[in-house]
Amino acid sequence: MALMHRATLRPTKLELLSAWLPGRPWFRGEGGADVQRVAGYRFDDPAGDVGIETILVRAGSGPVHQVPLTYRDAPLDGAGSWLVGTCEHSALGRRWVYDACGDPVYAAALAGAILAGTGQAEEYFEVDGRREHRALSMGIVADGAGQSDVPKVGSLDRVDDGDPTRIVTDSVELSVVRLVGGHTGLGGARLTGTWDGQPAALPLAYASPR
């Protein structure tokens, strides 16, 4: 379950991404265009410490990009090269926003979603002491869920920041599609997604135990 706050962010997530995305080697958006949100989904951190959100965005007339993010209340040791930026959250204070491909908490959540079919987190707003459900903006399905045991992810051994971005951990190898609509033939169990205007499922990520 993802508990959301009705709060303001300065700068906003899309403002952070508008500044950060053009420097990525896999970015193919329209130069100088504002980044627009297309859809998104969240995973749960079992420890409840790290926010995990994947946003699908488009810059101008460019393709849809997949950007997984993690939100932390303190810097992640050794992950400076994966920092998207910091923002001030009106309810939670300063948040460190990372490209989640460099965060082991995201790797563990993605492995569980693909190999065990844990699915995306239900989203709720806290309003006057009550929880209000927020409708999901897209659906995700794990094609190969249950076909293998879900290994415990302890550390990241290597991350290759291309398209797909390959995350090699001590127990599983993950591939995260950056330009959504390509990379249909990668090996391993697969996570696919659909959203408004995209009824046919497209690959989002792949996982293979090591």
Score class of each variant (00 low, 15 high):
109 A>Y: 04
160 D>L: 08
21 L>Q: 03
137 S>R: 15
5 H>W: 07
88 E>V: 09
141 V>R: 15
187 G>W: 01
203 P>E: 08
55 I>S: 09
135 A>L: 15
61 S>Y: 07
204 L>M: 15
175 S>K: 02
208 S>H: 12
46 P>G: 10
146 G>E: 07
107 A>I: 14
193 G>S: 07
97 V>F: 06
171 S>D: 02
7 A>P: 02
47 A>D: 11
200 A>S: 14
113 A>E: 03
129 G>Q: 12
209 P>C: 12
210 R>G: 08
147 Q>R: 15
6 R>G: 08
31 G>M: 07
148 S>F: 05
126 E>C: 11
31 G>D: 11
49 D>Y: 01
112 G>E: 10
49 D>A: 09
40 G>L: 07
184 T>D: 15
182 G>D: 05
25 P>W: 08
166 R>P: 00
184 T>W: 10
157 D>K: 11
41 Y>I: 06
112 G>Y: 05
131 R>V: 09
70 T>R: 00
59 A>W: 00
24 R>T: 13
137 S>V: 14
161 D>H: 03
41 Y>C: 03
24 R>W: 04
174 L>E: 01
38 V>Y: 04
196 D>Y: 08
159 V>P: 01
46 P>Y: 05
61 S>W: 02
187 G>S: 13
23 G>D: 10
87 C>T: 03
195 W>C: 03
81 S>N: 03
175 S>H: 09
65 H>A: 02
90 S>N: 04
204 L>D: 05
123 E>F: 13
48 G>Q: 09
81 S>M: 03
